[in-house]
Amino acid sequence: MAYETPVATTAPDAPRDGAPGPGAAARRTKRPGSGHRLGPTDRLAVIAMVVVPTVLVIGLVWLPAVASVVLSFTSWNGIGPLEADDWIGLENYRNVTTNYPPFWPAVQNNLLWLAFTFLVPTLLGILLAVLLDKELKGSRIYQTALYLPVVLSLALVGFIWQLIYSRDQGLLNEVLGTQVDWYGDQSVNIWAVLVASAWRHTGYIMLIYLAGLKGVDGSLREAAAMDGSGEVSTFFRVVLPVMRPINLVVLVIVVIESLRAFDIVWVVNRGTNGLELIATLVTQNVVGEASRIGFGSALATFMLIISSVFIALYLRVVMKEER
């Protein structure tokens, strides 16, 4: 397969017989591209279309990522050039894993975030989308109400929930008559924040799914109904498989949203006291004065590794699909 280039096939063929036989001619016309060659302008356009995005992706994504990994082996503070004695090998990784108490809670919280986001808001969003797809009375209003939180930035969501969760002046304690320190008590604050983030995420998933459901061919459902399939089994056996691309997109969104979870926790207490996330630890170490760029890069590398696992899984599924 790799040798089926035009050069490889024509070279032994043409010069041996003085006049090429009909078979050779037929083969030549079948060759892709030889019939309508690209003009120089088109060729340039194709090259530009390939080269420009490649350069951008390499320059803006891959180089910084690699640089970040490289910096994780240094004690660079972000000022001046890298010097020889900045190289400290695996020291940062050793410190991150053994001499940095917030790290393991952060990993745990990120994974919890992932599991929770998948189990609660995603499934709830799908359920709501299915219900709204039924064209209930006032479905527009429900749709708008449920989607509204998505328009708000997570930082604003954090603030809104602060009014609800505040221990002394908050709505929730007022209504329940309790004195729970929702944002301060380590045993509840991560759940409090997860609920706030789910409040926003549900509407997002709902909208994506709703759009997908609208795209499902109505005749499929009719056919299923004719065959005596009930609502539930139609959904699981017909609609859900048809929506496979949407399901994949939703899955990817869940993973991305969970790994980059940051803003809401940052608003609450900047990712300390039980709300540690890898992203907040990276920011704490890298942003601002006297930065621990090397240490923060080591943390970021952990994040890169975790994301890579999911990216690899996703690519595997997508590639399989294409084949």
Partner: peptide, 22 residues
């Protein structure tokens, strides 16, 4: 403090209201 400055990653408008009490 630097800590508070970090906290100001939040948009100014949000922070203003967040800092605000009744």
């Amino acid at each position: 403090t630097s800590a508070e400055h970090l906290a100001r990653l939040v948009p100014g408008s949000v922070l203003a209201t967040r800092a605000a009490t009744r």
